[in-house]
Amino acid sequence: MAFQFWKKKKDTDPAVQATDAAVESPSATQDHEELVAVDLPKRSARNAIKSIFSRIKFDVENLELIEDTLIQADFGLEAASEIVSKVKDLAKSRAAKTNQELRQILIEVIAQGLEHPAKALNLSSGATPYVLLVVGVNGVGKTTTIGKLSNWLAQGGFRVTIGAADTFRAAAVDQLATWASRAGAKLVKPIQEGQDPAAVAFEATEQAVREGADVLIIDTAGRLQNKSDLMDQLGKISRVIEKQVKIAEVLLVLDATTGQNGLTQAKAFTQIANVTGIVLTKLDGSAKGGIVYSVQRELGIPVKLVGTGEGIEDFSFFDAAEFAAGIVGLEEA
Protein backbone atom coordinates (compact mmCIF):
# COMPACT_ATOMS: atom_id res chain seq x y z
CA MET A 1 0.00 0.00 0.00
CA ALA A 2 1.47 3.34 -0.99
CA PHE A 3 1.14 6.34 1.23
CA GLN A 4 1.28 9.47 -0.79
CA PHE A 5 1.27 12.93 0.55
CA TRP A 6 1.22 16.24 -1.13
CA LYS A 7 3.83 18.75 -0.45
CA LYS A 8 4.32 22.26 -1.72
CA LYS A 9 7.30 22.70 -3.93
CA LYS A 10 9.71 25.03 -2.26
CA ASP A 11 10.00 27.65 -4.97
CA THR A 12 6.30 28.51 -5.05
CA ASP A 13 4.46 31.28 -3.35
CA PRO A 14 4.00 30.22 0.24
CA ALA A 15 1.11 32.60 0.77
CA VAL A 16 -1.17 30.64 -1.47
CA GLN A 17 -3.09 28.11 0.51
CA ALA A 18 -3.41 24.76 -1.12
CA THR A 19 -6.96 23.64 -1.45
CA ASP A 20 -7.71 20.34 -3.03
CA ALA A 21 -4.55 18.64 -4.06
CA ALA A 22 -6.12 16.43 -6.68
CA VAL A 23 -7.63 19.37 -8.54
CA GLU A 24 -4.62 21.64 -8.26
CA SER A 25 -1.66 19.57 -9.10
CA PRO A 26 -2.07 18.50 -12.74
CA SER A 27 -2.32 21.97 -14.21
CA ALA A 28 0.08 23.73 -11.93
CA THR A 29 2.53 26.14 -13.44
CA GLN A 30 5.60 27.85 -12.11
CA ASP A 31 3.57 30.80 -10.86
CA HIS A 32 0.94 28.82 -9.12
CA GLU A 33 0.82 26.54 -6.24
CA GLU A 34 2.48 23.34 -7.24
CA LEU A 35 1.88 20.24 -5.28
CA VAL A 36 4.33 17.42 -5.53
CA ALA A 37 3.42 13.92 -4.57
CA VAL A 38 5.76 12.74 -1.89
CA ASP A 39 6.19 9.05 -1.37
CA LEU A 40 7.31 8.19 2.05
CA PRO A 41 9.66 5.22 1.81
CA LYS A 42 7.63 2.03 1.96
CA ARG A 43 7.68 0.17 5.19
CA SER A 44 5.88 -2.83 6.55
CA ALA A 45 5.43 -4.20 10.02
CA ARG A 46 4.47 -7.60 8.66
CA ASN A 47 7.44 -9.53 9.91
CA ALA A 48 7.49 -7.93 13.31
CA ILE A 49 4.18 -9.34 14.50
CA LYS A 50 4.21 -12.93 15.61
CA SER A 51 1.09 -15.03 15.58
CA ILE A 52 -0.56 -15.88 18.86
CA PHE A 53 -2.72 -18.56 17.35
CA SER A 54 0.01 -20.74 15.91
CA ARG A 55 -0.65 -23.51 18.38
CA ILE A 56 -4.38 -23.69 17.82
CA LYS A 57 -5.84 -25.77 15.05
CA PHE A 58 -9.18 -24.16 14.45
CA ASP A 59 -12.39 -26.05 14.11
CA VAL A 60 -15.99 -25.21 14.73
CA GLU A 61 -15.92 -26.86 18.14
CA ASN A 62 -13.03 -25.01 19.71
CA LEU A 63 -13.90 -21.43 18.84
CA GLU A 64 -14.04 -20.65 22.56
CA LEU A 65 -10.29 -20.99 22.58
CA ILE A 66 -10.13 -17.89 20.43
CA GLU A 67 -11.57 -15.86 23.26
CA ASP A 68 -8.88 -16.92 25.70
CA THR A 69 -6.17 -16.24 23.18
CA LEU A 70 -7.53 -12.81 22.37
CA ILE A 71 -7.70 -11.99 26.07
CA GLN A 72 -4.05 -12.95 26.34
CA ALA A 73 -3.31 -10.46 23.59
CA ASP A 74 -4.97 -7.72 25.67
CA PHE A 75 -8.04 -7.37 23.49
CA GLY A 76 -10.10 -7.27 26.66
CA LEU A 77 -12.95 -9.48 27.74
CA GLU A 78 -15.76 -7.68 25.97
CA ALA A 79 -14.00 -7.19 22.67
CA ALA A 80 -12.84 -10.80 22.72
CA SER A 81 -16.31 -12.22 23.21
CA GLU A 82 -17.68 -9.88 20.58
CA ILE A 83 -15.10 -11.09 18.07
CA VAL A 84 -15.84 -14.71 18.86
CA SER A 85 -19.55 -14.30 18.35
CA LYS A 86 -18.96 -12.54 15.02
CA VAL A 87 -16.67 -15.34 13.92
CA LYS A 88 -19.29 -17.90 14.89
CA ASP A 89 -22.00 -16.13 12.92
CA LEU A 90 -19.85 -15.77 9.85
CA ALA A 91 -18.66 -19.36 10.04
CA LYS A 92 -22.24 -20.51 10.17
CA SER A 93 -23.46 -18.38 7.30
CA ARG A 94 -20.54 -19.41 5.10
CA ALA A 95 -20.50 -22.98 6.30
CA ALA A 96 -16.82 -22.57 7.03
CA LYS A 97 -15.26 -25.58 8.69
CA THR A 98 -11.60 -25.93 7.93
CA ASN A 99 -8.79 -24.43 9.94
CA GLN A 100 -7.86 -22.27 6.97
CA GLU A 101 -11.38 -20.93 6.43
CA LEU A 102 -11.88 -20.14 10.08
CA ARG A 103 -8.55 -18.36 10.31
CA GLN A 104 -9.50 -16.27 7.33
CA ILE A 105 -12.76 -15.29 9.01
CA LEU A 106 -11.02 -14.33 12.23
CA ILE A 107 -8.55 -12.19 10.29
CA GLU A 108 -11.45 -10.52 8.54
CA VAL A 109 -13.30 -9.77 11.76
CA ILE A 110 -10.27 -8.32 13.52
CA ALA A 111 -9.23 -6.28 10.48
CA GLN A 112 -12.72 -4.94 10.08
CA GLY A 113 -12.74 -3.74 13.66
CA LEU A 114 -9.51 -1.87 13.07
CA GLU A 115 -10.32 -0.31 9.70
CA HIS A 116 -10.90 3.39 9.71
CA PRO A 117 -11.44 5.95 6.93
CA ALA A 118 -9.00 8.39 8.49
CA LYS A 119 -6.08 6.13 9.22
CA ALA A 120 -3.48 8.00 7.18
CA LEU A 121 -1.66 10.89 8.79
CA ASN A 122 -3.34 14.17 8.06
CA LEU A 123 -0.53 15.70 6.02
CA SER A 124 -2.39 16.74 2.90
CA SER A 125 -4.58 19.70 3.74
CA GLY A 126 -1.94 22.06 2.42
CA ALA A 127 -2.02 24.26 5.50
CA THR A 128 1.55 23.96 6.65
CA PRO A 129 3.15 23.52 9.04
CA TYR A 130 1.29 20.34 9.86
CA VAL A 131 1.45 20.25 13.63
CA LEU A 132 1.70 16.84 15.23
CA LEU A 133 1.26 16.89 19.00
CA VAL A 134 2.63 13.72 20.57
CA VAL A 135 1.21 12.73 23.95
CA GLY A 136 1.17 9.71 26.25
CA VAL A 137 1.99 8.34 29.69
CA ASN A 138 5.58 7.92 30.88
CA GLY A 139 7.89 5.50 29.17
CA VAL A 140 5.78 4.47 26.19
CA GLY A 141 8.32 5.69 23.64
CA LYS A 142 7.15 9.19 22.71
CA THR A 143 10.61 10.58 22.11
CA THR A 144 11.75 7.56 20.10
CA THR A 145 8.56 7.76 18.04
CA ILE A 146 9.28 11.39 17.25
CA GLY A 147 12.83 10.55 16.24
CA LYS A 148 11.68 7.81 13.88
CA LEU A 149 8.84 9.83 12.48
CA SER A 150 10.92 12.92 11.78
CA ASN A 151 13.56 10.79 10.10
CA TRP A 152 10.95 9.17 7.91
CA LEU A 153 9.35 12.47 6.99
CA ALA A 154 12.76 13.93 6.24
CA GLN A 155 13.45 11.03 3.89
CA GLY A 156 10.23 11.90 2.12
CA GLY A 157 11.45 15.46 1.62
CA PHE A 158 9.58 17.20 4.41
CA ARG A 159 11.26 19.97 6.35
CA VAL A 160 10.72 19.01 9.96
CA THR A 161 10.93 21.10 13.11
CA ILE A 162 10.69 19.51 16.54
CA GLY A 163 9.55 21.34 19.68
CA ALA A 164 11.05 19.85 22.85
CA ALA A 165 8.21 20.60 25.24
CA ASP A 166 9.18 17.79 27.61
CA THR A 167 10.88 20.05 30.06
CA PHE A 168 10.39 17.71 32.99
CA ARG A 169 12.19 14.42 32.43
CA ALA A 170 15.87 14.46 33.10
CA ALA A 171 17.77 14.60 29.80
CA ALA A 172 14.67 14.38 27.63
CA VAL A 173 15.85 17.32 25.56
CA ASP A 174 19.27 15.77 25.00
CA GLN A 175 17.68 12.52 23.91
CA LEU A 176 15.54 14.41 21.44
CA ALA A 177 18.55 16.37 20.19
CA THR A 178 20.31 13.11 19.40
CA TRP A 179 17.33 11.92 17.39
CA ALA A 180 16.86 15.28 15.68
CA SER A 181 20.43 15.39 14.44
CA ARG A 182 20.15 11.84 13.13
CA ALA A 183 17.02 12.85 11.25
CA GLY A 184 18.32 16.24 10.15
CA ALA A 185 15.44 18.05 11.80
CA LYS A 186 15.50 21.43 13.51
CA LEU A 187 15.02 21.45 17.26
CA VAL A 188 13.47 24.17 19.39
CA LYS A 189 14.76 23.73 22.93
CA PRO A 190 13.61 25.20 26.21
CA ILE A 191 15.78 28.08 27.42
CA GLN A 192 16.15 26.52 30.84
CA GLU A 193 15.28 23.24 32.55
CA GLY A 194 11.77 23.13 33.92
CA GLN A 195 10.54 25.97 31.71
CA ASP A 196 6.81 26.11 31.05
CA PRO A 197 6.31 23.54 28.27
CA ALA A 198 3.55 25.67 26.77
CA ALA A 199 6.08 28.45 26.23
CA VAL A 200 8.37 26.05 24.38
CA ALA A 201 5.46 24.85 22.26
CA PHE A 202 4.55 28.43 21.45
CA GLU A 203 8.08 29.33 20.40
CA ALA A 204 8.43 26.16 18.34
CA THR A 205 5.21 26.98 16.52
CA GLU A 206 6.32 30.52 15.91
CA GLN A 207 9.66 29.38 14.54
CA ALA A 208 8.11 26.67 12.36
CA VAL A 209 5.73 29.20 10.83
CA ARG A 210 8.47 31.77 10.35
CA GLU A 211 10.85 29.34 8.70
CA GLY A 212 8.16 27.72 6.61
CA ALA A 213 8.61 24.19 7.99
CA ASP A 214 6.40 21.48 6.49
CA VAL A 215 5.86 19.58 9.70
CA LEU A 216 6.15 20.59 13.34
CA ILE A 217 6.29 17.79 15.86
CA ILE A 218 5.77 18.70 19.51
CA ASP A 219 7.15 16.34 22.15
CA THR A 220 5.43 16.48 25.53
CA ALA A 221 6.39 15.10 28.92
CA GLY A 222 4.94 11.74 29.87
CA ARG A 223 2.04 12.13 32.21
CA LEU A 224 -0.20 9.65 33.92
CA GLN A 225 -3.73 10.32 32.86
CA ASN A 226 -5.12 10.71 36.37
CA LYS A 227 -2.85 13.63 37.27
CA SER A 228 -5.24 16.44 36.61
CA ASP A 229 -2.74 19.30 36.88
CA LEU A 230 -0.47 17.72 34.29
CA MET A 231 -3.41 17.03 32.04
CA ASP A 232 -4.46 20.67 32.34
CA GLN A 233 -0.97 21.65 31.33
CA LEU A 234 -1.40 19.55 28.19
CA GLY A 235 -4.62 21.39 27.43
CA LYS A 236 -2.70 24.65 27.70
CA ILE A 237 0.01 23.41 25.32
CA SER A 238 -2.56 22.52 22.70
CA ARG A 239 -4.32 25.87 23.14
CA VAL A 240 -1.20 27.96 22.65
CA ILE A 241 -0.34 26.06 19.48
CA GLU A 242 -3.83 26.47 18.09
CA LYS A 243 -3.56 30.21 18.56
CA GLN A 244 -1.15 30.19 15.63
CA VAL A 245 -1.79 27.02 13.65
CA LYS A 246 -4.44 24.38 13.67
CA ILE A 247 -3.14 21.11 15.05
CA ALA A 248 -3.22 18.46 12.33
CA GLU A 249 -2.89 15.41 14.54
CA VAL A 250 -2.81 14.63 18.23
CA LEU A 251 -1.04 11.30 18.43
CA LEU A 252 -1.39 9.22 21.57
CA VAL A 253 1.51 6.84 21.97
CA LEU A 254 0.51 3.51 23.47
CA ASP A 255 2.96 0.81 24.45
CA ALA A 256 1.95 -2.60 23.07
CA THR A 257 2.45 -4.10 26.50
CA THR A 258 -0.24 -1.85 27.98
CA GLY A 259 -3.22 -3.71 29.29
CA GLN A 260 -6.76 -2.56 29.82
CA ASN A 261 -5.47 0.69 31.24
CA GLY A 262 -4.77 1.72 27.65
CA LEU A 263 -8.45 2.39 27.21
CA THR A 264 -8.52 4.63 30.28
CA GLN A 265 -5.50 6.45 28.92
CA ALA A 266 -7.13 6.99 25.54
CA LYS A 267 -10.29 8.30 27.18
CA ALA A 268 -8.46 10.72 29.43
CA PHE A 269 -6.16 12.08 26.73
CA THR A 270 -9.02 12.43 24.28
CA GLN A 271 -10.94 14.48 26.77
CA ILE A 272 -8.08 16.94 27.18
CA ALA A 273 -6.44 16.99 23.78
CA ASN A 274 -8.82 15.42 21.28
CA VAL A 275 -6.63 12.51 20.21
CA THR A 276 -6.88 11.79 16.47
CA GLY A 277 -4.70 8.74 16.21
CA ILE A 278 -2.77 6.08 18.10
CA VAL A 279 0.87 5.20 17.69
CA LEU A 280 1.38 1.63 18.85
CA THR A 281 4.98 1.12 19.96
CA LYS A 282 7.14 -1.82 20.98
CA LEU A 283 5.17 -4.20 18.79
CA ASP A 284 8.27 -6.28 18.23
CA GLY A 285 8.16 -7.66 21.74
CA SER A 286 5.96 -10.52 22.84
CA ALA A 287 3.02 -8.18 23.47
CA LYS A 288 0.40 -7.73 20.81
CA GLY A 289 -1.27 -4.47 21.68
CA GLY A 290 -4.77 -5.89 21.43
CA ILE A 291 -6.01 -2.98 23.52
CA VAL A 292 -6.06 -0.80 20.40
CA TYR A 293 -9.01 -2.86 19.23
CA SER A 294 -10.98 -1.79 22.29
CA VAL A 295 -9.82 1.79 21.91
CA GLN A 296 -11.14 1.99 18.38
CA ARG A 297 -14.26 0.05 19.29
CA GLU A 298 -15.18 2.40 22.12
CA LEU A 299 -13.71 5.72 21.08
CA GLY A 300 -13.43 5.44 17.31
CA ILE A 301 -9.76 6.43 17.35
CA PRO A 302 -7.71 4.57 14.74
CA VAL A 303 -4.17 3.32 14.98
CA LYS A 304 -2.07 5.29 12.53
CA LEU A 305 1.52 4.27 13.10
CA VAL A 306 3.39 1.36 14.61
CA GLY A 307 6.86 1.14 16.11
CA THR A 308 8.55 -2.20 15.71
CA GLY A 309 12.05 -1.95 17.09
CA GLU A 310 14.93 0.16 18.24
CA GLY A 311 16.31 1.09 14.83
CA ILE A 312 15.43 4.45 13.32
CA GLU A 313 13.63 2.73 10.45
CA ASP A 314 11.60 0.32 12.55
CA PHE A 315 8.47 2.29 12.03
CA SER A 316 5.58 2.08 9.60
CA PHE A 317 2.00 2.95 8.90
CA PHE A 318 -0.60 0.76 10.46
CA ASP A 319 -2.29 -1.67 8.15
CA ALA A 320 -5.29 -3.35 9.74
CA ALA A 321 -5.30 -6.36 7.43
CA GLU A 322 -1.60 -6.92 7.88
CA PHE A 323 -1.89 -6.56 11.64
CA ALA A 324 -4.80 -9.00 11.82
CA ALA A 325 -3.06 -11.50 9.56
CA GLY A 326 0.07 -11.21 11.66
CA ILE A 327 -1.79 -11.86 14.88
CA VAL A 328 -3.80 -14.80 13.60
CA GLY A 329 -1.17 -16.29 11.32
CA LEU A 330 -2.03 -17.90 8.03
CA GLU A 331 0.05 -21.02 8.15
CA GLU A 332 -1.37 -24.36 9.14
CA ALA A 333 -1.05 -25.14 12.79
Binding site: I71, D74, V137, T257, G259, G285, S286, A287
Partner: peptide, 15 residues
Amino acid sequence: IDAMIGQDAVNVARA
Protein backbone atom coordinates in the same frame (compact mmCIF):
# COMPACT_ATOMS: atom_id res chain seq x y z
CA ILE B 1 7.82 -3.66 35.85
CA ASP B 2 5.24 -1.09 34.87
CA ALA B 3 2.00 -1.50 36.84
CA MET B 4 0.05 -0.74 33.68
CA ILE B 5 1.33 -3.72 31.74
CA GLY B 6 -1.29 -6.12 30.45
CA GLN B 7 -1.34 -9.85 29.78
CA ASP B 8 2.23 -9.80 28.60
CA ALA B 9 3.38 -9.42 32.21
CA VAL B 10 3.71 -13.19 32.54
CA ASN B 11 5.86 -13.55 29.42
CA VAL B 12 8.11 -10.68 30.37
CA ALA B 13 8.49 -11.82 33.96
CA ARG B 14 9.28 -15.36 32.87
CA ALA B 15 11.76 -14.20 30.27
